[in-house]
Design a protein around this nucleic acid. Sequence first.
RNA 1: GGGCGAGUGGUGGAAUGGCAUACACGAUGGACUUAAAAUCCAUUGGCCGCAAGGUCAUGAGGGUUCAACUCCCUCUUCGCCCACCA
Length: 839
Amino acid sequence: MAEPHYPFNEIEPKWQKFWDETGLFKVDEKNTKNKFYCLMMFPYPSASLHVGHGRNYIIGDVVARYKMMNGFNVLTPMGWDAFGLPAENAAIKGGLHPRISTLANITTMKKQLNRWGVGYDWAREVTSCLPDYYKWTQWIFLKLYEKGLAYKKKAAVNWCPSCNTVLANEQVISGKCERCDTDVTQRDLEQWFFKITAYAETLLKDIDKLTNWPERVKIMQRNWIGKSEGVEIDFKIADSNKILTCFTTRVDTIFGATYMVLAPEHSEVDDLIKGAVNEKEVRSFIQKAKNETMIERSATNAEKEGMFTGKYVINPVNGRKIPLWIANYVLMEYGTGAVMAVPAHDQRDFEFAKKYNLPIEVVIDNPKGKLNAALMKEAYIEDGVMVNSSQFDGLSNREAMGKIADWMEQKKIGKRSVNYRLRDWLISRQRYWGAPIPIIYCDKCGMVPVPEKDLPVLLPEDAEFRPHGESPLARSRSFMDVKCPKCRGKAKREPDTMDTFVDSSWYYLRYLSPKDDKKPFDREVVNKWLPVDQYIGGVEHAILHLLYSRFITKVLYDLKLIGFDEPFKNLFTQGMIVKDGAKMSKSKGNVVSPDILIDKYGSDTVRLYTLFIGPPEKDAEWSDRGVEGAYRFLGRIWRVAEQITNHPPSPKASADVRRSFNKGGHKFQLTSEASKKLRRKTHQTIKRVTEDIEQGFHFNTAISATMELVNEIYDAIQEAKEGLGDDPTLKEAIKTVAILLAPFVPHISEELWRKWGNKESIFKLKWPAYDKSLIIEEELELVIQINGRVRSKILVPKDSSELDVKEKVLIDEKIKQWIGDKPIKKFILVPDKLVNIVI
RNA sequence: GGGCGAGUGGUGGAAUGGCAUACACGAUGGACUUAAAAUCCAUUGGCCGCAAGGUCAUGAGGGUUCAACUCCCUCUUCGCCCACCA
C-alpha cells in the first residue's frame, strides 16, 4: 500500500480514548439546562454491523456533536433490543444459549461502534434481556393489567408452522411469516392482548402534534389506524324477530342494497342455516372458508365465493326483501361481519352479483351520462346524483349521506358509527427468549398477577427451548410450579413470554435511570428530559415500534406516571444503504464490513463517505470507489493544513510537503483581492453548512460545500506569493474547514485543532457564526436572457436599479446583435440575478 | 386495487420558478518520478463547428409562465408501504 495520506491509524484510537477518558458524552441527568435528548433506535444484537447499519449511528453522532457545539447539554445513550427470535433459533440449531450469544454479540457491536468514533454515554447502557431491565417490562405489563388494558382471550391467531409460534398481524406479510416466509395458518389459542384499540382515536388525533415527523410516516400510521366513519344499519330478518346489523361508509347507496352478506364466522350463521334445504352444502362451504389459510384469503385475485342461506332480510329504508348470503370476502374482524351489498356502486359487490346473478340497481347516477345497470361493466363508485332513493332523489350523493344518516337516526333504524382497522396488540409468544408474562394461575384464586415485590419473574436456565407448539417455559418445572401469591396454594405460571416490541416501547425512559432498582424510571427526571428531541432510525419501524411506543407513553401518561403524552418530538428516518441494488444480507453476499474499510482508510473516511453518499433520508447505493474519494478529500485537508499553518509536517506527510517545508515555501501571502474572495467563501460556507444541517439534515450538500471551500483554498495558494508569514485569511479558512467538519469527521478535526495549539476539545468550541458583511458580493454577474435563453452576462454593482441595468444591457455587443432592430416587448429584471428581454 | 416516493451526464448526486448538470466518482491529457503509486494542474452531457458560437437534452406528451428539473393535466417505468376494511 502507498504511504497514507494522513496518519489516521494513529490519531483515531487516540481521540476515541480521549473522548472516553474526558467524558465528552457523559451527562449529568440533573443538569437539564439546554438539554437535548438525541436518541437512535437501539439495535438487535446480531453477529456484527455492516455499513448500512452504520448510517443510523453516524447520523445520530453528527447530530449529537453538532448540538454539543451549539451549546446543548446532549444526552445520547445506547442500548440493546436483546430479546428475540434469531438468538433462539440459533440456539435451537445447536448453537449457544441465547443469553451467551447475545451478550457476545453486544461486546462485538460495542467495539464496532467505538471504532466508528460514535460516542455514547455508555454508563446508561440498557440491555432488554437482562433481569434489571425486563423486571420493569413486566412491571409495565402489570400496570396495563391493573388498568384493564392487558387481557386474555381465545382468539384465532396467526400460526407459523415452521417457527412453531404465534405471529402478530403485523408479522404476517401477505399471508407469509415475516421471518421465514412460510404460509401462515390459523389456530385458536388463549392469548394475551394489549388493548391498543382503546387508544385508536387518541393515537390518530395526536399524529397532528408530531409536526416534525416525516409526512409519509404519519400517513402510514393514519392508514394503519384506519378510521372510517359511517352508519350502522339494522336489517330485520324476514319471518323472524332477529336483527342483523351491518356497517357502511356509503349510506348514500342504501336504497341500492340488493342483498346482504355475512362472514362465514358470523355468530348468527349457525342459527340461520339450521333446517335450510341446502344446510349441508352451506355448512361445508363455511368449513372450507374457515380452513382457508391467510394466504388464500388475502390473495389479490382471490375468487369471491358465496352461498345463499335461504333466508331474507328487510332493507329498512324501503321494506324490500333481499336475499341473505355468506361469502368468503367478508371479514369478521372488521365492522360487524355483515355487509349490505350495493353491486351498482361497489366493485366487490358488483363482481359477486355478476357471478351469482344477483340484481344490480343504480341509485347514484353519473352526471356525465345515465347509467344502465344491465350494461354496466364495473361498479360506478364516483360521486353523482341520487336516483331511485325516494325522497332523496335529485340530491348530490355527498349531501344525501348526511341527510340519510340523520333520517335513519331519527327513525331509529341506524346510527352513526366509527370503525378502525387497528386491532388489539397480541403480545403472547410461545417462545423462550423473551420477558415472561408475570401472571400466575391458581385453581382456587384464578388468574393472579405476580406481586410487584416478586418481580422479576426470571427466565429459567433449565428450559429446553425447542418449540413444541407451546412455550418452552411450560416444560421447566422449576419455572412453572409456584405458590399462589394469594392463598399460598399450588399454582402454575403463565408460560408465554412477551413480544419484543413491548421491550422496545419504553426503553427511552430507562436511559435516564438505568441502574435504579426501585422504579423503572424517575418521574421528575424523565419529565425534564422527554420528549426525545431527536429520534433517528429506519423507516421500517414507521408503524409498529413507533405506534407501540406512542401507545405505552399515552398509557403511562393516563396513569400519571409521566407528564407527557408523546415520546418523540422530532423523528428522522434514514434510508437504507444497498449494494448491487439489494439490501445487504449475508445470504446475498453483498455485505460491506466497516472493519476492513476502517483498517484501510480510517473511520473518518467511512463516516464522511456514508454522509456524502446522498440525502440521508433516501436509499443509497454503496460504492467502494466513492470511499476513496472521501479518503482523498481528508488527505487534501491534512496536507493543506500542514502547509498553511507553518507546523513541521509529520514524518508521514507526503514528500512534496516535506520538501516544500524544508525550502521554506510553506508561507503564503494572499493579495488583498484574493484574500477578500477567500474570506467571502469561508463565511458563505459557514452559512451553507449551518443551514444544510439545520434545515433537514442535508449532510451531503454540507460536505460538498466544504469541499468547495477546500478547493478554493488550493486555488488561493496557487496564486499566492511566498510571503513573510502565515496568511490570516488562509488560516481562518482552514480552521473553519476543521470546525465545520468536526461533527462529520471528528478525529481529524480534533487532531488538527490540537496541532494548532488548542488545549480543549474542538467539541467544546462554539459553532461558528458567519459575518453577514463578509458574504455580500459588491459586484454580481447578471445573466441576460433573450426570450428566456441565456445570451450574455454582465457585471453590475449590487442593488443596481432597473434603469442602470437596462442601460448597461442594451450597450452589450452580443445583446445588441440579438435584438437588432426588433422592438422590445418586455424587460424583466430579477434584481441581482437576471434580466429577460422579450422581443 | 389504494397510498407514498422517485425517474437529471458513463456513475452517486446538486439545483423547489430565474445560468440545468454544483460536489464527488470514473475517464482522458499534462507536471513530478529511472518507473509506478500518491500528489498537483487541466479537460470531461450529446450533436454541428478549426474556432467564435450554435443547437438538442432533466422518463414521454401536453398546459400555465417573460422564464419550468421545479407548478398543473395525461401517460409510463421503477421502488416502498398497505391491501377483499364494506
